[in-house]
Every structure is written in structure tokens, then in C-alpha cells.
Amino acid sequence: MSQRSEVYRTSLLGLLSPAIVLSVWESAGALGWINPILLPRPSQIVWSLVELVADGAVFPPLLYTIALFVVGYAIASILGIAIGVAMATSETLYGLLEPLVEILRPIPKSALVPVLFLFLGIGKTTMITVVVLAAVFPVLISTFQGVRGLDPVLLETARTFQVSRMRTIFSIILPASLPMILAGMRVALGLGLVLVILAEMLAGEDGIGFRILDLQRAFQIREMFAWIFVLVALGGGLMMLFDLIERTLVPWRGKT
């Protein structure tokens, strides 16, 4: 995305519009145009944020959310890739799993959160399961499509040279379908984040999602916004990390 980098090349230009928005917001607050109880000024929110970081209160919920997300996302990615490859390379497994996948996939996963709390209980297992369910299908489907879309000549060649099945998968199929797998994982990243926050809100144990809802219920709006800022940083950080990994693994992507 060269157009993106163009905006950020001169970092000052990239900062311009957020700076304008923040200062308008700040001065509107200072002038009393907005109700400070409902929408605190950015400086007040930043102050709350500083307090959160300074006394270390930010870390337990942050780590909690990260841990839930990372575990769920990792499981989903591995499962999605494994099942996707299996279904794309074996007719039997395709037949066995396709109907089940087609039944589960279209369910909006948010609807499953209350249901899963009922049948898996209220623990972390359930929350991780929610993230896995949300993230696994995009990975699975794009892996499947990626593998199916490979040049048949490639696979024929492998067969001609009698390369073992495992080796074919790991050294030919996976690298060749990597761009598609990563595209699926990108969609899964966003969905997984949505669901981890929702699960935390409904499970009410800990995590950023829980903090936000809890503070809103106690009408501590300023602290609530501070947590939303934390979440923005977390989401943004994860997306940047993903971009970086993608660029390293598939350097030819985005140059088309």
C-alpha cells in the first residue's frame, strides 16, 4: 500500500488531522460546549491513562485480554490451516467435514457466547472457545481456497518425484498458499478481537472488555475512556504486528 506510506512518510502530515481533532475536542470541552460527565476532555482522559500506567493497574487486565486472545487466535490459526489443508487435499475428509463446517460457519458467533457460557461454564475455556470459533472459519476457508487454487502442475511434479505427503504439504502446499492463509488470518484477527471483548463483557471476570463495561456501569466515564484508549493501542499494535509479519513472510505481496 504505497498510498498509505505516502501519508506517513512525513510523519508531521500524518499527525496533522488527529492533532486538529484532539484540539477541537479539547477546546470544546474547556469552553463547556460538551458535557464533561459524558465526554471528558482528551487531556483528562490522558491523565487517567497516565495514572493507570503509573500505578501498574493497566497491566493485569491488559495481559488477561492479550492472553485470551493470543491463545484463542493461535489455536484457531493452527486448526484452520490444518483442517483447510486436510479438506483441500483429501476427498474423504472433505466429505466428512464440509457439512459440519457449512452448518457452523454462518452462525454469527456472538449469538453463541451466551450458549457457550451455559454449556462450557463460565471459565476461560469458554472465552477461548469463543475466540477460536470466531477466528477459525476465515482461516479455514481461505486456506482451503488457497490450496485448491494452486497450480496442479506443482502437485503433479511433487508426485512424479515421489515426495512424501507430509513433505508435499510442508514444503510445497503451505508456502505456496501462504498469501491466502494470511489474508484469512487478517480477517480472523479483527473478528477474534471483537469476540474476545464481547466475551469479557459477558463473562465479567477481568480483561479490558470487562473494565469498560464495569466503569460505564459505575459512571466513571473518564476511566472508561482511558481503557478504550488502551484498547485502541492494543488493537493497533496487533494490526501493525500482523502487517510486519505478513511483509516479512510474503514480501512480494502488495507489489502487484
Binding site: 451466551p114 457460557f117 451455559l118 461454564g121 463460565i122 471459565g123 459477558l202 463473562a203 465479567g204 471476570e205 470487562f210
Partner: peptide, 18 residues
């Protein structure tokens, strides 16, 4: 103290989560 929605409390009790 754990936050559990009312409808889920009985099952959580039986599963010894609370």
C-alpha cells in the same frame, strides 16, 4: 467474587466453578 449472569449461576455451582 465472580460476576455470573443469574441464569448461569446454578450450572456454575454444579460444575464447581463457584
Amino acid at each position: 467474587f465472580r460476576e455470573v449472569a443469574f441464569p448461569q449461576m446454578i450450572d456454575a455451582l454444579k460444575q464447581k466453578q463457584i
